[in-house]
């Protein structure tokens, strides 16, 4: 029906008819593993080793600092606002783009992806240009005593910008691949639009949503460049966890910096684990159809 259906690649059965000599094979595996160990595993190990260098007590003390706790609170608030908004947007955009055809669709997809190709520093700068004192509506905001940049709303806006495409770009190809026959059947049988979405579409895209949300959340909690531009670095007020890591590091308080950083590294590991499961589930679901 729709010619533009993008299919997920099927997992190939690796044929063994032709391959390299065993010696070459093991050599290539060794080079790849050494490279990855040096570039990925070593930094990961270093974060935890530095964090626990002076023992568990020092580690826990660093995390119990009031400034650390307030940075964790701000990061959680930011993610709690950003992720639901971008999730709602992602599902709506995917519904419109995957289930209907209309002119300008490809342009719309490109525009949704745009925030990924903009430098994080520029993602912060654009909000300063609008809401900052020298910005478009900055003077008006000051007259009414509303603070957006160098305050929490600016941090949230910049975070929404950098995590904008995550859910949408995962759901669009997935929903296109699934087609719309199941939804059509539900509607013909008398279901309302919302019933169709919640009982037919949602179960089908569940793992795609989890995948998009987990990546969106990881970036929202870990964003540094964009947030750094709009935050104003007010300790205990507008510091997110990554910004707090920077401050501690620049104060030569390395153990505390790595203790706080280890929280983010731990989050990254959980993200990778959930992402791997979600990827596998999505693949399995598409193959079973």
């Amino acid at each position: 029906m729709s010619a533009s259906t993008k299919t997920y690649p099927a997992k190939s059965s690796t044929g063994r008819a032709q391959t390299e000599p065993a010696l070459v094979r093991w050599l290539l595996i060794a080079i790849a593993l050494v490279f990855l160990a040096l570039f990925l595993l070593l930094p990961l190990a270093a974060v935890f080793s530095q964090a626990f260098e002076k023992g568990l007590a020092v580690y826990l003390d660093a995390l119990k600092e009031p400034d650390t706790l307030s940075s964790i609170r701000l990061t959680l608030i930011t993610a709690a606002v950003t992720v639901p908004l971008n999730l709602f947007f992602g599902v709506t955009a995917a519904w419109a783009i995957a289930k209907f055809s209309f002119p300008g669709k490809n342009l719309l997809i490109t525009l949704i992806d745009l925030p990924f190709s903009v430098s994080p520093v520029i993602s912060g700068l654009i909000y300063v240009l609008i809401f900052g004192l020298q910005g478009w509506i900055g003077p008006w905001l000051q007259d009414h005593d509303i603070r957006i940049v160098f305050a929490v709303p600016g941090i949230i806006l910049a975070t929404i910008f950098v995590t904008f495409p995550f859910v949408a770009r995962e759901l669009i190809p997935l929903m296109e691949a699934q087609g719309k026959e199941e939804e059509e059947a539900a509607l013909v049988l008398g279901a309302t639009g919302l019933q169709t979405f919640f009982r037919v579409t949602l179960p089908n895209i569940k793992w795609g949503i989890i995948y998009g949300v987990i990546l969106c959340n990881a970036r929202a909690m870990g964003e540094f460049g964009a947030v750094s531009v709009v935050s104003g670095h007010i300790r205990g007020m507008t510091n997110t966890v990554p910004l707090h890591v920077e401050i501690l590091y620049n104060e030569y308080n390395y153990t505390a910096a790595f203790a706080v950083a280890s929280l983010l590294a731990f989050l990254a590991l959980i993200t990778l684990a959930i992402k791997t499961v979600a990827e596998w589930k999505v693949r399995q679901q598409l193959e079973s159809e």
């Binding site: 990925l40 909690m221 791997t276």
Partner: peptide
């Protein structure tokens, strides 16, 4: 595990990567 770990640079916040690389 190696396959999953390849995405670490996507998941690890850039500030954490920065201070870690500088330290190593």
């Amino acid at each position: 595990i190696v396959d999953a770990l390849v995405d670490l640079p996507f998941a690890l916040p850039t500030a954490v990567a920065g201070i870690t690389l500088a330290t190593i």
